[in-house]
Every structure is written in C-alpha cells, then in structure tokens.
Write a protein that binds this DNA or RNA. Structure first.
Lengths: 338, 338
DNA sequence: CACCTTAATGCAAGCCCTTACATTTTTCGC
DNA sequence: GCGAAAAATGTAAGGGCTTGCATTAAGGTG
C-alpha cells in the first residue's frame, strides 16, 4: 500500500519550484512565455510530484476544454467505429480529446447525451446525420457550441457537414443494377423515420427507377432494425413476395450479409436467383462468400477530415467548411445480370 | 441567429426561483431534501433558463463526477465494442457516465489515456487485462482511483477482475481438437508481448498438448497484428510449413476469418484439409462459410457485470468483487476429425 | 549610464458549484 | 398552544486553475 499522499496541485508545484502558480500555469500552457531555466525548474517539480492538472478546475477557469464530443447511434457497428477511430486519431494529433457517447438510435437519448457532453465542456460536437429536433440545434446555438455533421452531405443543407451524398450514391448503384436488366427491385432498409441517411438511400433507388421509366412504387420495401439476423428475417419477407424481386438492395452491409446468409440457408442462389447489394463496404463485405457488391464509403477519410475541420475551427477560428466525399461502387460477386 | 445570451448558472436559477443556490443544488442532487413546492419552482426556473450544470465546477466542488473511464485497445473491434456497449448501458441505468479512450495497443498511449481520464475526474477505471507497468498501478493507487480489470480472470491475481480464464478456455478447446485426432497444431496469435490474453490463450494450447503427451514445442506459432488481412497472411505462412498443420487455432475470430478466406482463395478445404478454430464468437463467426468453430465469450454479460461491480463499489462502498465468467465451446463447421 | 522597451514573473480576482454549519420554519406530542 | 425535534433553507467557505493587470528584471540605445 502506498501511503495516501494527497493529490498534488498547481500550488504544490509552484512552491516546490519556487515560483508562483501563474508561472507554473504558463509553463504548462504557453511554454515560450516562460524563461527556459524557470520552465525546467517547473518541469522537474511536476515530474517529482507526478502532478497532473485537474481537468474540471482547468475547464472552469479557461472556459475551454480542448475536448470534442461525438455522438453515434451505436458503437456496436464497425461502420461508425472505424470512422470514429480515425476522427479520434486526428484530434489527438492536434492535442484535442474525443468524448464519445452512443444513443442506441433513440432520439431522446441523443438529446440527453448532447446535454451531457455540453455540460462536460465539449468545445464542439460531431453528430451523425442532419435530422433532429430543431430544439436541439437551438440549444446548441444558445450554448455557442459549434456542431459539425457527418455521414451525410446535402448540398442544400444549412448546417455544415463532412460526408457523402447518400441518395446520389445509392442512385448510381441502382442505375447500374437496372442497367443490368433488373426490373423487380427490393430494399431492406434501416428504419427511415429518424434516420435521414437511410431515407436518402431509399430515395436514391426510387429516383433511379423513375429515371429509367420504372414505377418507383413497385419497389418492394422492408424496414428493419440493425443486425445480421434482422437482415436475414427481412430477406425472408421479401422472398415471400410475388413476383419475387431479382435484386435486393440493402441499406447497409450488415443487413446484406444477413440476407446473404439466409439465401444460402434457403438454397437461393446468389447471384443466380437473386442479386444482393450492400452499402458501406466494411471488411465483412470481402469476407463473405460470395463477396458482396456494395457502395464503398471512405469512413476513415471522413473521420479524419471531420477532425481536421473541427480543429481548424477551434484553433484558428476558420469557419466550419462543408466537405463532400465521394463514394465508389464496388462490384464483387453478389450482383449478376438478369 | 439566437441573440447570444450568456449561459445560465446555478445563481441565475436561484434568483429566478427566489431561493438560494444551496437549495437549487439540493433540488437537483437530493430532491427529497427539498420541499415539493420549492422543488417545483426550481424545476420551472431550470426549464425556462435551459440551465444545465457545469460539469467542471461540479466535479471540483463535489470531488466526484459519476463518471467511469474505460480504456480499450481499439474501437475498431466488434469484440470490445460489444462489451463496452453493455458496460455503458449498465452505467447509464445507474446514473453514471462512461468515458472511453482507445490506445491502439500502445502501452504509452494507455498510460497517457489513464492520466487523462483521471485528470478528467473519472471516479473509477475499467481496463483490459492485467499486464501493465507497475508504475501505472502505483499512480492509480496514489490517486485513489479504483480499477477493475476485465477480459481476463486469473484466480491468482491480486487485482480484481470480471472476466474469463483465457488459458483454460483455450485449453478446453485444444483438448477437444486433440481428441479428434489432430496432432500437428498451429496458432495464429495476436502479439503476446503486451497482451496477457493472447499469451494466456497460447499457453492454454500448450498445456493441452503437454497433457496429451504431445511436445508443446511442436506448436507452429505465428504472431500478427489484428485484422482480417493479417490473419490471411499468417495463414499463408503456416501453410508453407512442413509438415502442414492439420488444425489452426486463431487468437480471435477476426484472424480466423482471415485464415478462412485465404484457405478458400488457395483452394484448401476447410475442414477437409485443415481445421480452423476461432475465439470470441462474434457475429461474424456464424456468417462466414463454413461457419466458424470457436470459443464463445459472454461479452455483453461481462460488460454488464463489470458495470454492476463498479457501481456497487462507488455507490455503496462494496469492495470490487472478482467475477469469473464461463466461456463455452461452440462447434460449427470449420473443425473436423482428422 | 540614464532611460525606455520588452521579457518574465507575481498578485489576486474570478470561474460555478457543493456542503458543513447556522438559521429559520414546520411538525407533532401532550 | 408550547416546546422540542425534525425538516427546510440559507450562508459562506472553499475546490484548482487561468489570466488581466501590476510589478520587477533584463536588454538596448544614444
């Protein structure tokens, strides 16, 4: 057992180094405002005492925390995890810290988490998608907390975002699919009600159908929660439909993988009997058999750029610049001609 | 643009409600110490002002934060993500907040993150595995921050943990594999140097070999970083070995899936030519084809229990109770008899 | 070498809450 | 309806840090 010595404070460091607390504070935060010899004395004292500044006190006095909050629907999802990891790395490189919270796709929880992060002193927030209660945006504006959105990019939107055009991406894929002769299309989507990305992807397909002279109402549409098993169940539903769709789009790769598994279990050949198309291009997509045709989203780049934009804003006062990233269609083996 | 009104403080709420700050504070933190009418007045004022308490000030004054820090090697890993999600849910249920940080498997980063979380006022910490610089434990003891370990359980260990016995779990699997006639065993492991879980799993196989009268030095052993591609590459290495192993253990499912993919690419039949065994039983394991034989780890339960233990300690002063969870062998299709 | 900059440091006022303790109000038994 | 105990509220002292301003030391100039 270590004897319970009290936690050292700035004051302790100051006494030990024989200077004032102000000098210690400056030695830590603005090293070049302090003479070299003094700085060294301070550093020695800090090391000897094992001092580390109290975050709360610091936040209170300085009115900033060098902390950026991020709120994602769930951590249990490789998609967000990867982007977030890149985001965090970028922040760290610049001396900022990331705080994460997850909402389990519940709007109420999101609001709560936003408040919590703001109360914790987050200097800015990264949020997924545009859609949320205007009151939340008002609150954030009132608190003067900059917000960057991500995972979506809508040229019309007023809020800055770093993301990609979900609708256009899906539309491009749908055009290809239609171009290969498919006419009876289906979609397994995440729940669109609170999720503008899911809604936009759905919309993309409809647009492609209309453009190709197909009636977009013939799109066979199932909404479901996130998960492999959910994707499988949804696939069953679609296959019960008459006439059977020949191409099944999925709102994300996880759902697609579930559909693919169920197809195998049911003895439905992919892409012989039915084509399956994913979205995101997570690692999983290359691992399943047959490998998944999907829309590649540059998650890491998105996370990194989002970090960059936020850091530039906070550190240098540069306005939050919207950035549109490009997705890419990846043709593997689950899509075939009709 | 909202006019930039200043962020309301406790004082503002107090004035508005016509009471003292102490009363407001109590109305928020200990509602039943305050008369109902007063409480209502306060709540109204809070709502009207959109007040939310300043976390830093609160932490400083109360010397606790109701925050628990968790540090994981990486978020880009379904395994940790799932356990963590459950951990967080349990904390939330009890009014605690989780703060996550990831280390990218670098011990230095871990130390830095630990300091950062402590400085941020984490009331306790959840860390993965036992192995780390004793200086870190000393620091934590000195700061009086309780630490719970997880993802591992060693009956001999002095630090409390909520986890499972990595070695015994792998040993049980290895015994089965040996019982099926396999003699030439191989292991694709995560890097064991800083990772006691990986080391323990490796050890489990060796123990089983010894117990079965095999020379544990004949275990064909490859270490690699985490990732599907890494698993694939490691598999190549193993297959180049003469005589070829007939059963390939993998330190985790992700590596196993990589191995499986490469086997397919190389035309090596699984389990006909070689059996592949994973560890963790993430969703992925059921999705790949053939479905992966693996060791099931109750990640969600682990996260939940860890949260429970920590909450009980912080709230009711109950000592951190070690809990050993049971793993389970899951036989699917990648393991066959020799 | 006196005088003026400029660089380094110190002083002390906050920042916003919580809580021990003091004070006032309510409740209740008789 | 009185007094004592219990409940509700108020007062004010921190808690550890940053930073504007004042002060002192160092450097430059004619």
């Amino acid at each position: 057992m270590t004897s319970q010595r009290p936690i050292p404070t700035l004051q302790d460091v100051a006494s030990r180094a024989g200077v004032s607390t102000a000098t210690v504070s400056r030695a830590i935060n603005f090293p070049d405002q302090v003479a070299e010899v003094t700085r060294d004395k301070v550093n020695v004292a800090i090391a000897e005492l094992g001092y580390s500044p109290n975050f709360g006190a610091r936040a209170m006095a300085a009115r900033r925390t060098n902390t950026i909050g991020a709120i994602i629907p769930t951590m249990e999802n490789a998609i967000f995890a990867r982007g977030l990891q890149a985001f965090q790395e970028e922040l760290r490189r610049n001396g900022f810290t990331m705080l994460v919270a997850s909402t389990a796709y519940q709007p109420d929880t999101e609001e709560e988490q936003i408040r919590s992060l703001v109360a914790r002193g987050a200097d800015a927030l990264l949020l997924i998608g545009y859609h949320r209660d205007p009151a939340i945006y008002e609150f954030l504006d009132a608190q003067d907390v900059p917000v960057l959105l991500t995972w979506a990019f809508d040229p019309q939107a007023t809020r800055p975002s770093v993301g990609f055009n979900n609708s256009a991406a899906m539309q491009a894929m749908a055009e290809k699919v239609i171009g290969m002769g498919h006419r009876r299309l289906a979609l397994i989507s995440a729940e669109t009600a609170q999720n503008d990305r899911a809604a936009a992807r759905c919309d993309g397909i409809r647009q492609a159908m209309t453009a190709a002279g197909l009636d977009s109402d013939t799109l066979c549409f199932v909404e479901t929660k996130y998960g492999i098993n959910e994707g499988a169940a949804a696939f069953d539903q679609l296959m019960a439909h008459e006439p059977r769709p020949t191409a099944v789009f999925c709102g994300n790769d996880v759902l697609a993988v579930g559909a693919l598994r169920r197809a195998r279990e049911r003895g439905i050949a992919v892409p012989g009997d039915v084509s399956i198309i994913g979205f995101d291009d997570i690692e999983l997509a290359q691992v399943v058999y047959p490998a998944l045709t999907t829309v590649h989203v540059p998650h890491r780049e998105m996370g990194r750029k989002a970090g960059e934009v936020l850091v530039n804003h906070l550190r240098d006062g540069i306005a939050l610049t919207p950035i549109e990233l490009q997705t890419r269609l990846v043709f593997r083996d689950t899509l075939g001609p009709l």
